[in-house]
Design a protein around this nucleic acid. Structure first.
Length: 509
RNA sequence: CGGGGUGUAGCGCAGCCCGGUAGCGCGCUUCGUUCGGGACGAAGAGGCCGUAGGUUCGAAUCCUAUCACCCCGACCA
């Protein structure tokens, strides 16, 4: 972008009274988050407690995420399938840890029919239509999938199974927040079956890598990779790998998980195969998922007090063109030019919205697209037509410039690239500035209280200590770094007992 | 499930303490002037005040019950 951009006038643009409908992050971070989700038209509350409506603009971003992830799954050999929403209750009790983990938040279907009540006014559950076996609305699909895989697997030749599904799941959460925790959410869940432990472990790590790449390259969100402690592990897993991102308020957000399930589900559902050595063996498993929670992560990683900021690679519209005109003739000229530019940019694969609504003023449109987070805005008016220029405004750093219409696509491509990188670097700088290594319990509490962020500290490896730290400070072990076993030993920051290495603590969403 | 709060026009709120049949801002409709950072003027439309009982000549307002949602905690992605 340098060559094309040097001669341009850059200036911070008018910010007074912008975003007048948003609370600032400093005033009330939670409120700020909710305001953005609503104002940017990503989602709204529904008539159902804990459930939200994902609106077209929000869903478009989710579709961008889906498309990128789905391609990465396909590129690593996975295929999509679909399993039922309902799971027989009995399936759930087959894996002890799994039931224990999910029992408290399951929606249960008990009847299959309604009827009008005695008075004829209302409608009631028909007591005669009670299900023989109650059905659970899936909180995750391991059980129904492993019950199915039993039929799919007989020989080592049937392995591996590399299946993903895009689905909705329900977890009856006590407290919900738009995108971050809703009773129903959308996600993908990969479920793989392998002949060997080694292969399954490699798969779990591979998908963690896919999530990491996605977070960094598409969401422009740096993440830490690691392993969950026993307390935080997925119900039924041997090992849970995760990526953790740091939000602007210093709290951590789990952005994706990948589980090595060992043979737990194979044993629970009797999924065996005949090996090359003609021996019956249990299958090795993984599962991995990311959800619409990533939408929340996206909002809280990049957005500012003026609204949403979307990284170009996930923006439904990367560029919005706002025509400026007075008369009908000017409208024709300016919008005509807008259409030309739109077509020209689209030839290069750029996603462009021409906002030719005659019902809103330019200023209104500027504000609207700003809080909707469109990375680049092009304004074209009569002056630009005359000078063969356009006005460009960047959402990430709120600068405006006037640029020649010549080679506009090159300017735009370079700028989008620059915005994507800038957003990542800004988030990375924030993350790096908020990882603190501490050596004493006093320091731990003080950093957590005054600074927040990720805290690296020695831990004695026991659940008891982890529990106590959580009780006293609300901070949990977000992850144990992947290279933990090669790290230098020390003393647990809480108990003083020997520690194998540093782990990462934080308060989390 | 505990603690707190809120239900009044599409959205945000006032009115309630001290009962007399509902108001403000934004938005919406029409017309005119505007249009390079959320336009202006004029004229309009829109609510049986969450629900159900009760007190009263009369209830948005007082009493009782109930439902829903939001926020803060305990559980979770």
């Amino acid at each position: 972008m340098q060559s094309n951009f040097e001669f341009l006038i850059l200036y911070k643009y008018y910010t007074k009274n912008m975003a007048k409908d948003l609370v600032t992050r400093d005033e009330d971070y939670s409120q700020w988050y909710n305001d953005i989700v609503i104002k940017a038209d990503l989602a709204e509350y529904s008539a159902v407690r804990g459930c939200m409506v994902i609106k077209p603009y929000g869903y478009a971003i989710w579709e961008m995420m889906q498309a990128a992830l789905d391609k990465m799954f396909k590129d690593t050999g996975h295929v999509n399938a679909y399993f039922p929403l309902f799971i027989p209750k009995s399936f759930f009790s087959k894996e002890a840890k799994h039931v224990e983990g999910f029992a408290k938040e399951c929606a249960v279907v008990t009847h299959y029919r309604l009827k009008t009540d005695e008075s004829g006014k209302g409608i009631v559950v028909d007591p005669d239509a009670k299900l023989e076996e109650e059905l659970i609305v899936r909180p995750t699909s391991e059980t129904i999938i492993w019950d199915t895989y039993r039929k799919w697997v007989q020989s080592w030749r049937d392995l591996p199974i590399l299946v993903n599904q895009w689905a909705n799941v329900v977890r009856w959460e006590m407290r919900t927040r738009l995108f971050l925790r809703t009773a129903e959410f959308l996600w993908q869940e990969g479920h793989t079956a392998h002949a060997t432990r080694k292969e399954a472990e490699a798969e779990a790590i591979k998908m963690l890598g896919v999530y990491t790449t996605f977070a960094q390259n598409f969401m422009a969100m740096p993440v830490l990779q690691g392993v969950k402690s026993e307390n935080e592990r997925f119900a039924g897993a041997i090992e849970t790998y995760c990526i953790e991102a740091l939000m602007q308020d210093g709290k951590a957000l789990q952005a994706g998980t990948s589980h090595f399930l060992g043979q737990n589900f194979a044993k629970a559902f009797d999924v065996k195969f005949l090996s090359k050595e003609n021996k019956q063996e249990y299958v090795w498993a993984t599962s991995w998922g990311v959800s619409t929670r990533l939408m929340g992560a996206l909002v809280m990683t990049h957005s500012d007090d003026n609204g949403l900021v979307i990284p170009p690679k996930l923006a439904p519209y990367q560029v919005v063109i706002v025509p400026i005109y007075k008369s009908d003739e000017e409208f024709e000229t300016v919008v005509g030019k807008g259409r030309e530019i739109k077509a020209q940019l689209e030839r290069y694969g750029i996603r462009v919205k021409l906002d030719d609504r005659d019902t809103q003023k330019p200023g209104y449109k500027f504000a609207e697209w700003e809080y909707k987070g469109v990375p680049l805005r092009i304004a074209i008016g009569p002056r630009d037509i005359q000078n063969q220029t356009v006005e460009l405004a960047r959402r990430d750093n709120l600068t405006k410039s006037v640029t020649s219409i010549n080679d506009l696509e090159k300017t735009i491509i370079d700028l989008l690239d620059d915005i994507q990188n800038n957003l990542y670097n800004k988030a990375l700088t924030h993350r790096e500035a908020n990882i603190t290594e501490v050596n004493s319990w006093e320091e731990f509490k003080s950093v957590l209280e005054n600074k927040g962020g990720f805290i690296k500290a020695h831990w004695d490896g026991t659940s008891e200590t982890e529990e106590k730290i959580k009780d006293e400070t609300k901070a949990t072990i977000r992850l144990i770094p992947l290279d933990y076993n090669q790290s230098t030993p020390g003393q647990c920051v809480y108990s003083g007992n020997p520690s194998k290495g540093l782990v990462v603590f934080a308060k989390s969403y």
